[in-house]
């Protein structure tokens, strides 16, 4: 069974005027069909307003589809009696770290989810410790969240989700408000959770460097899925990506520019190491050092 499966998912925002008449209808999602395998690390790219956040909120059943269906671990999000199971299965981390931390002490915040699930006290403490260790924030368990850096706050938020023992974590632009160090911290943590704890990860972002290690990249535009594939397949199509207001990592762009200028380089170079090797090969073959 796939972790997440959607078919023809459509969501409409309806704006009404003061008398309640429909003023306009915006299709935030327009026939999205996709499948995410258990244990995968999937990245969703798309510009602001492309529908990627709306999609994320559907996975957590915060929004319900206007048309089509979405299954989380086989559960239809429209079935109201499964709501809490769905939210426990697919946890969600949001963009602003300040606006998702409820408690004034780190450990109490991580315990909030399990408390809501009715987990016995002893088990809550065990889960809080495990999750804080998993994100490397155990030493900060008695601190006030207000005194932490942005990256640390996001790791606490991730621990809060992990304590609910989800199978899947959806992260909605978790790094948008962080500095480069905080971004690295969060991405490293998420990758570790994916490889060690086998949690399925759905990362929504518009930082290209963060997706090069993903198993699969989905590009959204105008409420539709417009590209899908491995990072290499996606980043090979520089012009197409740019047409969706996206970008490629700087090194990928450099390789692409060199190729356009005639150098025989492969498509979709993703790292400095790959680049050096490929350019080295060209120069060696040419014998022109």
């Amino acid at each position: 069974m796939p972790m997440i499966q959607s078919s023809d998912l459509t969501f409409e925002y309806i704006r009404r005027d003061e008398e309640g008449n429909v003023e306009s209808i915006t299709k935030a999602l327009d026939g999205v069909s996709m499948e995410i395998k258990k244990g995968d690390f999937v990245a969703i790219l798309g510009h602001n307003g492309s529908g990627k956040s709306t999609l994320a909120k559907h996975i957590n059943a915060i929004l319900l589809p206007t048309e089509g269906t979405l299954y989380v671990d086989g559960m239809d999000t429209k079935e109201e009696e499964r709501l809490w199971d769905i939210r426990q299965t697919a946890g969600m981390v949001f963009q602003n770290p300040d606006n998702q931390i409820i408690a004034t002490v780190v450990e109490e915040d991580v315990g909030f989810g399990p408390e809501n699930l009715g987990v016995p006290t002893k088990e809550i403490w065990k889960r809080v410790e495990e999750s804080l260790r998993a994100v490397g924030m155990y030493e900060y368990r008695t601190h006030s969240p207000n005194k932490l850096s942005g990256g640390q706050k996001q790791r606490v938020a991730i621990a809060g989700i992990m304590a609910m023992k989800p199978q899947c974590i959806v992260l909605d632009e978790p790094t948008a408000m962080l500095d480069p160090n905080g971004r690295k911290e969060v991405i490293r943590t998420v990758r570790e959770l994916n490889s060690r704890e086998k949690v399925t990860v759905l990362l929504i972002t518009h930082y290209m460097e963060e997706v090069i290690h993903a198993d699969k990249v989905i590009v959204m535009d105008d409420g539709k899925i417009v590209m899908q594939g491995t990072p290499r397949e996606i980043f090979s199509q520089v012009e197409k990506l740019k047409s969706f207001r996206m970008d490629v990592p700087q090194i990928t762009e450099l390789a692409y520019e060199l190729k356009k200028a005639g150098m025989p380089l492969p498509d979709g170079i993703l790292s400095v190491e790959e680049f050096v090797e490929a350019v080295g090969r060209c120069c060696d073959v040419g014998g022109r050092r």
């Binding site: 520019e257 060199l258 060209c282 022109r288």
Partner: peptide, 13 residues
């Protein structure tokens, strides 16, 4: 990117 491109092309060519 533009400067790096020029630098690499200068050597390659």
């Amino acid at each position: 990117v533009q400067e790096a491109k020029a630098a690499v092309l200068a050597v390659w060519k």
